[in-house]
């Protein structure tokens, strides 16, 4: 089943086209990353899906039905900034969330514990630090243990320990079979947790699909020897290579995804009189791919 299906979605703010005819689907049990630089339309897209923004064109479906409020009750969402009643405590704010969702009133202590806010649960939201506010927003999304979660920049405002904890939490949630839609401009965040990705640039969907298909085109074998010039000339004739580059103190051999065999390369060089001082397999990094796609 598709949790979300977006058809030709557009959004204009006056003359500015924030989203241009975007279409993709989010299958069940995936961690779907929506990746793009600031201002690429990620939050606009999620805003439309959660009905806080009205689309200028196109449509979308939730749970393969026309979207309505009852679908949103089944989704835990953190959109852009933590939005709470500033004069109420964490517990009182979550009671409102639970009342709106119609479930989760008995789950408040658990979610506050998950985000490590138990000690401050009775203090007013206005006294919280930025990181604590973000944690409360994550707690609100987790309330009632929904099967689908939408996280928009979930690690915003968190310190390095907090970032690591939340990423671990997301991976754990994904492993438990939840569908997670996550917008981020942080590449390694998406790379570490997502199974699928959609890449947005200035409101246009550049590409989307399985992370392994989209983000890893080549295997790159990084090698080095005492004579890299000679090494490069030898490897140019290595069967199956798509490109050999000499850079700084290494030689990079590009091979089709999944075909690199380090042992074979080592033997190939040794048989031709070159002893390797370095031999390492790298996947094309998401960052490199992202830059390639968005520039």
């Amino acid at each position: 089943m598709d949790i979300l299906k977006v058809n030709d979605l557009s959004k204009n703010y006056g003359y500015i086209k924030a989203l241009k005819n975007v279409s993709f689907s989010v299958p069940q049990n995936t961690v779907y990353g929506i990746l793009g630089p600031n201002g690429s339309g990620k939050t606009t897209l999620l805003g439309i899906i959660t009905d806080v923004l009205k689309q200028s064109g196109g449509s979308f479906q939730l749970f393969e039905e026309a979207p309505d409020a009852s679908h949103r009750k089944k989704i835990g969402t953190l959109l852009e900034t933590p939005n709470f009643y500033h004069y109420l405590s964490a517990v009182k704010n979550l009671k409102i969330t639970a009342a709106i969702k119609g479930r989760g009133a008995d789950d408040i202590d658990r979610v506050l514990d998950v985000v490590d806010l138990t000690k401050r649960k009775d203090h007013a939201f206005s006294t919280y630090s930025l990181g604590m506010k973000q944690r409360l927003a994550i707690a609100a999304a987790l309330l009632g243990d929904p099967d689908v979660l939408i996280f928009d920049e979930p690690t915003n405002g968190l310190d390095p320990v907090g970032i690591a904890e939340i990423r671990e939490l997301i991976i754990k949630l994904a492993a438990s079979g939840k569908t997670i839609i996550m917008a981020s401009h942080l590449l390694d965040e998406v790379e570490k947790v997502c199974t699928h990705v959609a890449i947005l640039k200035q409101g246009t969907l550049i590409t989307h699909g399985n992370v392994n298909e989209i983000l890893v085109n080549d295997d790159i074998v990084v090698v080095a020897s005492s004579d890299n010039e000679k090494l490069k000339n030898i490897l140019i004739n290595f069967p199956g290579n798509t490109m050999v580059l000499l850079s700084d103190n290494t030689v990079k051999v590009h091979l089709p995804n999944g075909t690199a065999n380090l042992e074979e390369i080592n033997r190939y060089c040794f048989e031709r009189g070159v002893v390797l001082s370095q031999l390492q397999l790298r996947k094309t990094s998401l960052e490199a791919k992202f830059m390639e796609l968005t520039n």
Binding site: V52, A69, N83, F84
Partner: peptide, 17 residues
């Protein structure tokens, strides 16, 4: 001001409600 209007809708109130 505090964008709780957004959060109420996100959490499952309809705009009409």
């Amino acid at each position: 001001t505090y964008k709780t209007s957004r959060q109420n809708i996100i959490d499952g109130l309809s705009r009409a409600q």
